[in-house]
Simulated assay, not measured.
Amino acid sequence: MPRQLHARHDSFALSRPFRIARGVKTAAEVVTVTLAQGGLVGRGEAVPYARYGESIESALAQIEAVRAAIEAGADRAALAALLPAGAARNALDCALWDLEAKVDGIGVSARLGEPAPTPIATALTIVIDTPEAMAAAARDVADAPLLKIKVDANAPADAIRAVRGAAPEAALIVDPNESWDEAMVRAMAGVLEECGVALLEQPVPAEADAWLAGYASPVPICADEAVHVAADLDVVAARYDAVNVKLDKAGGLTEGLALAHAARERGLGLMTGCMVCSSLGIAPALHVARLSDWVDLDGPYWLREDRQGGVRFEGGYVLPQQEGFWG
Rank of each mutant, 00 (worst) to 15 (best):
A91P: 00
G196Q: 03
A223M: 07
A157F: 01
A153D: 15
D209N: 14
E182M: 13
A183V: 14
A189C: 03
E114H: 10
V227C: 15
R89L: 08
A137C: 05
A162L: 11
S179W: 04
A101F: 09
Y215T: 12
D129K: 05
V185Q: 12
E194G: 10
Y215I: 11
C94K: 04
P145T: 13
A88Y: 05
P115C: 08
A231R: 11
L96G: 00
A223L: 09
P220L: 11
E132S: 09
E225P: 12
A110T: 13
G113T: 06
V229M: 06
L192N: 03
A95C: 09
A155H: 13
A223N: 07
V103I: 15
A87V: 05
D209R: 08
L147N: 12
A206T: 07
R164Y: 02
E194V: 08
I160R: 02
V103H: 06
E194S: 12
P218S: 05
D140C: 11
T125S: 15
L200S: 11
I160S: 03
A135N: 04
E182F: 03
A155W: 02
A101S: 15
D140S: 15
N154G: 05
I221P: 01
G113I: 05
Q202K: 08
A95F: 01
N90L: 01
E114Y: 07
V229A: 11
D98V: 04
A213L: 10
A187F: 04
E194T: 09
R139W: 06
E132V: 10
V163Q: 10
L146I: 10
V141N: 10
A231F: 00
L112N: 04
M188H: 13
E182H: 10
I149A: 12
V141Q: 13
A210T: 14
P156I: 04
V163S: 05
A136T: 12
C94R: 04
R89N: 02
A167E: 06
L112P: 01
L212F: 04
